[in-house]
């Protein structure tokens, strides 16, 4: 919870800072855009978070976005498939890729980093090859379908919630409920901390890990559909490049530990928002865009450092308080201490 407050504070700070320096930041158009991009990146970040929570990593999501972005226009325009068929096909492809990652990681005992790094390279290559490296798009067609990405739910005359953001909210709520209120969510947290103990408790850890990679790939697939509908001109060589790193960054900013076991979906959504607001600030404040990566990197680093310092400060304070307490009772310490055995807690 403390972490959520911290990352929210960071979001508010960057938001206010930008708004004060450049009032155009607060125009309905700009806010809508920022929310839309938050939605798009947030969706793939949620999948990344599940993989990270189980102690893995998914480097392939950017290439899955690229592959889906190429396949969807090819199915719809090139093959003339119906919308439901094309959508099911690309989502099934993503699900299959997630299954593959999960099986390679669990059954073959390959390292997640290696498996998904190979995925990153492989899917990018396939996307470029099947499209002949030609830009893919929907032209002027499929306006209805494209509303999924560029449409909005109007709230006032000028401002509306972008569809991708609404999709993100739905997925985040589902993800949060899954993680905190279902048996499987608990299993993922437990095995993220200690896979062996989870297995000794009768948890089918392999199945849960595979499920996490499926979540990762399917959210990348959903994100890929929306990204493609949004840009309408998918360049196979670059579409989705680096998105896996944005997703991982959002998850880490949101409180996921790369050691596994820690993370909250709300935090990840806010983390994604921080990245998008920052990106927008760089553009709107006229900061040279060449600095974009440098600034985002620096802010993430500072955020993680601040988080660590706050944690240490809190730990030191609680130790000091308890030590003071035990000072007071030193003359007559409880025989039957409920505080445990200092020998074994170290």
């Amino acid at each position: 919870m403390k972490h959520i407050l911290g990352i929210s504070g960071l979001l508010v700070a960057v938001f206010l800072f930008t708004a004060l320096l450049e009032p155009n930041f607060l125009t309905a158009y700009n806010l809508q855009n920022t929310l839309r991009w938050t939605g798009l990146f947030g969706i793939i970040s949620i999948g990344a978070a599940f993989v990270i929570i189980t102690g893995g990593i998914d480097l392939s999501s950017g290439s899955v976005v690229g592959l889906v972005g190429v396949l969807l226009p090819m199915f719809l325009v090139g093959q003339g498939w119906s919308v439901p068929l094309a959508l099911s096909a690309v989502l099934l492809v993503s699900l299959g890729l997630g299954l593959l990652h999960g099986v390679l990681v669990t059954r073959m005992r390959l390292q997640p980093f290696v498996v998904t790094l190979c995925g990153l390279l492989f899917y990018r290559g396939i996307a470029r090859w099947i499209s002949g490296d030609q830009t893919q798009g929907f032209g002027g067609e499929f306006a209805g379908l494209r509303q999924l990405a560029i449409g909005r739910l109007p709230l006032t005359d000028t401002f509306g919630l972008p569809m991708p953001f609404l999709v993100l909210i739905v997925l985040a709520v589902l993800g949060g409920l899954f993680l905190n209120y279902t048996v499987w969510g608990r299993y993922m947290l437990a095995l993220g901390h200690n896979e062996e103990a989870a297995r000794f408790s009768g948890i089918n850890t392999e199945r849960m890990v595979i499920l996490a990679y499926v979540f990762g790939a399917v959210t990348a697939g959903i994100g890929g559909v929306l990204f493609a509908l949004d840009v309408n001109s998918v360049q196979p060589a670059v579409h989705g490049n680096f998105y896996e790193l944005y997703a991982i960054a959002a998850a880490v900013l949101g409180g996921c530990s790369l050691r596994g076991g820690e993370g909250s979906i709300l935090g990840v959504v806010i983390g994604a928002a921080v990245l998008r607001v920052l990106y927008n600030a760089i553009n709107i404040l006229g900061i040279p865009t060449q600095l974009e990566f440098a600034i985002i990197g620096a802010v993430i680093l500072l955020g993680v450092m601040a988080d660590e310092l706050v944690k240490r400060f809190a730990a030191a304070r609680s130790t000091a308080r308890r030590t003071a307490l035990s000072d007071a009772v030193m003359d007559d310490p409880p025989r039957d201490s409920a505080h445990g055995d200092p020998d074994s807690t170290l």
Partner: peptide
Amino acid sequence: GLVLELALRYNLTLAGLWRHRQIGGWL
């Protein structure tokens, strides 16, 4: 035997969590 980072409560129920499962995996 234990997931040391998790609450005692979660550890105590980890092996039998499926018994507290309702429709849809709800806990």
